[in-house]
Design a binder for these strands. Sequence first.
DNA 1: CCGCTTACCTGTCAGC
DNA 2: TGCTGACAGGTAAGCG
Length: 306
Amino acid sequence: MPELPEVQTTVNGLNKVLKGKKITAIWSAYNSPHYKGKENIKDKKYFLRFRKNTLNSPVLGTDRVGKNILIHLKNGVTVLIHMKMTGHLLYGKYEKRKEEWEASEKGPLQDPFNKHIRLVFELNNGKHVVLSDMRKFAKVMYIKTKDLERHSDLLSVAPDSFKLSQNEFVKRLRNKKSGKIKSILMDQALVSGIGNIYSDEILFETNIHPETDIDAVDNKKLEEIWRVSRKILERGINLGGDSMSDYRNIKGEKGKFQNKHKVYRKTGERCLKKNCPGKIKRKVIGGRSAHFCNRHQKLIKTKKRK
DNA sequence: CCGCTTACCTGTCAGC
DNA sequence: TGCTGACAGGTAAGCG
């Protein structure tokens, strides 16, 4: 998904509309035998339990842990939503036509990327929160609120750049003895919230080649990454997230961070750094597309250790 | 433990 | 106009 700024944008939106509301009905199009016996609403049996545990209890508030959305209910249950690649939550008035849900009013909610509706929460004010999720990768489950921090889904999520102090951030990354810096920044167990777009942008800004081994990145540089990651993620939040692809805010509107990309999906373009004659290259690193400048992001080889 | 591949899915786009 | 393959904000599981 949606990386930290997009998840935060969604959470901010939900907090404005959801507090005190109750879910009065739930409809789901998810159903896959692949998830049989798993804690995931894509398992039909689990879905029935999910529904029983989440209906008719007022929403206390919504927050974010890494890229996970948590919706806390008064009855001691928390709904966890991970939007993965193409999921995003929308709020508005919807109606069901045959087996398809449609936004009742003309506007951004009818944007094509908002029409892959897989899950619908009907609220007691007659409106709906729906999950549009083209690729059906999203994960939705419920957890007893008091068990949240012991739950495996959240235990494996590290604090994000805003929660970590500079020292903690450096210490965490320093603990990794090897690995490519881009993959490390995207490792949610080390520091959460950063995904493919923001990692590319952070490494561009800090002049680091994405394949640089963590061993070749000194502490000063890690401190800089911490500072820049906060700056860029904050910028993403202030711009309402990144809508290069599917992501939209809960009104169905685009964010604006995609207009500020310096490298992500800019293959072949000239480097935007002042006085840099470089060109943007694309290379698959750790199974993901990395974008970087071939001049000011030089690969520095690991110092050989004995 | 590490890193790579596969799987979960649907859709779009480039090239033949 | 098809078809085929590459690619897409993420992550878990399986493998060597």
